[in-house]
C-alpha cells in the first residue's frame, strides 16, 4: 500500500507548444505586439475627459428615449429598412443558388468554379458599408442602393455556405434514386434538395437577420433605411431620438430572433 517513498516525482501540465524556446519566443512576440500597439494608440486623456463631461447631457438624453418628435421619420425609416431587407434577401437567395452550385468543387467545371469563388470572395471581403458607398456613387442615394448592397453581400454569404453543403451531399443516396430510373427533376426533388434544403432555409433566415442589422448602417452613407434617420439624429445631436431608434431596432432584432428560432424548431 501507499507508504511514503523517498523519491519525488515531478509533473507539469503538458504545454500547448512543446518546445520551451518556441514558447518563450511566442510569449515575447505577443507581449511586444501588445506593448507596441498600446504605445501607438496615442490616447489623449484630456480630450477624453472633455468629451465625457460634454457628453453628460447626451447620456441623460439616452435614458430618455423620445419616440414622438421624430416618430414619423422613424416609422418611415423602419419600413424602408424592412422592405429593403426582405427584397434583398429574396434576390440574394435566388442569385446565390447558381453561384453555390458553381462554387461546389465536386460538381463544377474548373473555370466556372474559379469564377464563382472569385465573386464570393469579393462579396465577403468588403463590409456592407464599403459596398454601399460604391452603389450610392453609381446610382445615387436611396433604398435601391441599399437593396443592391444587401443583395450583393448576401450572395457571397449564402453561396459559400450552400456550396459547402452541396460538397457534403451523400452521393450514394443520389445513386440510389438514379438507379430507379429517375429523371433529372426527380433526382433534384428526391435526392439532392432534401439533403440541402433544411440547412439552406436556416441560412436564409439567418441572413435575413444580418441584412436587417446591416440595413441600419448602410443608411449612414446614404443607402436608405433607418440608418439615414439615425445618422440625421446623431448629426443634430438628438440623442433622445437616436436612443428611441436604437430601442426599436433592438426590439425588431429580438422579434427576428424569436422568429428564426421558431423556424429552426419547425425544421427539426
Amino acid at each position: 500500500m501507499l507508504t511514503e517513498r523517498s523519491e519525488n516525482y515531478s509533473w507539469q501540465r503538458p504545454h500547448l507548444i512543446k518546445s520551451k524556446n518556441k514558447r518563450i519566443i511566442i510569449y515575447f512576440l505577443v507581449l511586444a505586439y501588445l506593448i507596441f500597439t498600446f504605445i501607438s494608440l496615442e490616447i489623449d486623456p484630456q480630450r477624453i475627459l472633455l468629451g465625457l463631461s460634454r457628453s453628460q447631457k447626451y447620456f441623460a438624453d439616452f435614458f430618455r428615449p423620445d419616440f414622438i418628435s421624430r416618430g414619423e421619420s422613424i416609422m418611415d425609416g423602419i419600413i424602408e429598412s424592412l422592405t429593403m431587407t426582405y427584397v434583398a434577401t429574396i434576390f440574394g437567395i435566388i442569385i446565390s443558388i447558381p453561384f453555390a452550385f458553381g462554387a461546389a468543387e465536386n460538381i463544377s467545371p474548373k473555370p466556372i468554379y474559379f469564377l464563382s469563388r472569385a465573386v464570393i470572395v469579393i462579396s465577403r471581403s468588403f463590409q456592407e458599408v464599403v459596398i454601399a458607398i460604391f452603389f450610392v456613387v453609381v446610382i445615387g442615394f436611396g433604398p435601391m442602393a441599399g437593396v443592391l448592397t444587401l443583395t450583393f453581400s448576401s450572395i457571397g454569404f449564402l453561396a459559400k455556405l450552400l456550396a459547402e453543403e452541396i460538397e457534403d451531399i451523400d452521393w450514394s443516396q443520389v445513386e440510389a434514386v438514379k438507379a430507379t430510373g429517375a429523371s433529372w427533376p426527380q433526382l433534384m426533388t428526391y435526392a439532392i434538395l432534401p439533403q440541402i434544403l433544411p440547412r439552406f432555409i436556416g441560412l436564409a433566415v439567418y441572413r435575413l437577420d444580418i441584412n436587417f442589422r446591416a440595413s441600419a448602417v448602410i443608411g449612414v452613407v446614404g443607402a436608405g433605411g433607418i440608418g439615414t434617420t439615425l445618422n440625421a439624429a446623431f448629426d443634430r445631436y438628438e440623442f433622445d431620438s437616436a436612443s428611441a431608434i436604437l430601442i426599436v431596432m433592438i426590439a425588431i432584432v429580438l422579434l427576428g430572433e424569436l422568429f428564426s428560432s421558431f423556424i429552426r424548431k419547425k425544421l427539426k
Binding site: R5, N8, Y9, W11, Q12, R13
Partner: peptide, 26 residues
Amino acid sequence: LRRFPQKDINQAYQLLERLGLKDHLN
C-alpha cells in the same frame, strides 16, 4: 496554475502505477 503540492503528485504517481496507468499520465 496547477501547482499541486509534491505530496499530492507523489501520491498520484503511486496510485496510477498501482492501477497500471503510469504510461498514460499525460
